[in-house]
Simulated assay, not measured.
Amino acid sequence: MNQKYVLSKADLFITHGGMNSIMEAISNEVPMLLNPITPEQRINSLIVNNKKIGITNYKRDKWKTTGEAIEDLLNNSMYKSNIHKLNLKINNEIKRFDSNKLLDFIER
């Protein structure tokens, strides 16, 4: 099944934390529970955790179980609000992006 479609219907995304999955979650405004495997995913998960758009299992407080993390993500509106703000910020940057400047830079 198409991940983008599933995320458009989801309230929570449990992921390893690859950049594509994180960007799809942000664009669909779905908070994430990250269970990273690779070093890149670990870094991504810490960034997501610090931005408070999700929770990582990596280096998190041991007092919080996976069930408690899921409950927090589903019931704490802060995560949904933060991911909404980040999505708006990204979309505003995309609207301001001037592809001609990038092409000029590449051609030099």
Rank of each mutant, 00 (worst) to 15 (best):
L102C: 11
R42K: 13
N91T: 07
F13M: 10
I22G: 07
G18Y: 09
F105M: 05
N49Q: 15
T65A: 09
N76W: 00
K101H: 09
N2I: 13
N35I: 13
N49V: 04
A25V: 08
N35T: 12
L46P: 09
K95T: 05
K59F: 02
N2H: 15
D61R: 02
S21V: 01
P31C: 10
I14E: 02
H84G: 09
E40I: 11
M1Q: 14
N82C: 00
R96T: 11
N57W: 05
Y58W: 11
N82V: 01
H16I: 10
E24T: 12
S99T: 11
R60F: 12
G17K: 02
L7G: 08
D104W: 05
Q41D: 08
N35W: 11
Y79N: 01
K95C: 05
K4H: 15
I106A: 01
F97Q: 03
I70Y: 06
V30I: 05
A69S: 11
E40M: 12
D11P: 09
G17D: 02
I83M: 01
L102A: 08
G54N: 01
L74E: 00
E24C: 10
S45E: 02
Y5H: 15
K101E: 03
G67N: 15
L46D: 14
Q41V: 07
L86S: 02
S27G: 15
Y58N: 07
E93M: 10
K4L: 15
L102E: 06
R108H: 13
L88V: 13
L103W: 03
L33P: 01
L12E: 06
P39T: 06
K52S: 04
L86E: 08
M23A: 13
K101Y: 06
L33C: 06
G17E: 02
T15K: 04
T65V: 04
K51S: 09
G67R: 15
M19C: 14
I106P: 00
N76T: 02
N49L: 03
M1V: 15
T15P: 03
L73H: 00
P39G: 00
N44T: 06
L12N: 07
N49H: 15
G54H: 01
A25L: 08
L33F: 07
I94M: 00
N91A: 09
G67Y: 12
L34E: 01
N87H: 12
